[in-house]
Amino acid sequence: MIKLYTICLCFFLATVAVNAQTRYFTKDGHISFYSHALIEDIKADNHQVLSVIDTESRELAIQLLMRSFTFKKALMREHFNENYVESHIYPKAKFTGRIAEIKLNDTNPYETEISGTLSIHGVEKEVSTKAQVRIEADKITLSGDFNVVVADYNIKIPALVRDNIAKIVKVSFELHHKPYK
């Protein structure tokens, strides 16, 4: 029994050791959102998205600062932060989850599913979305889009601006990961 235990322990330690070499990371990933409403369309980009993948466990963690979203109009950014996502209280949006399939030796792009927990404005929700995976030499790219219902995250849109801001916004992501050192 002790032998079995030792073997198992070695196995887990080995996994941890291997994990250290199977991480892919980016800190300039791109996430944007698009709101289409009666009066105006609003698009915002964030080019400072942090993301890390563990190819062994297929786990994924993404994090961004709400304040790093840039808009066409400077005032939109201020209102987005001050009035809607309240970034002084909830500075970050986070995602932790798992990629259904990682084919490390396949250089053809393929589609898979990512599911996990998305946290925006202090509200956590289970989400899952289709995503494209492209694996080139030393580079893993995840891209795709999904819809976010603004009200799900307890973000209130006053009646006064309901024709300016969509109730459902489309979130797009493109994350180019490189080996993490």
Binding site: L4, C8, V16, N19, V52, T96
Partner: peptide, 28 residues
């Protein structure tokens, strides 16, 4: 011992996802 192994195994699994978050926290 077997139970212990499983517990350690589970711990190492959650530790992994926490490690990923720790990397992001460190980098940000």
């Amino acid at each position: 011992y077997f139970l212990l192994t499983i517990i350690i195994g589970l711990l190492s699994f959650t530790a992994n996802s926490q490690e990923l978050e720790a990397i992001l926290e460190k980098e940000s």
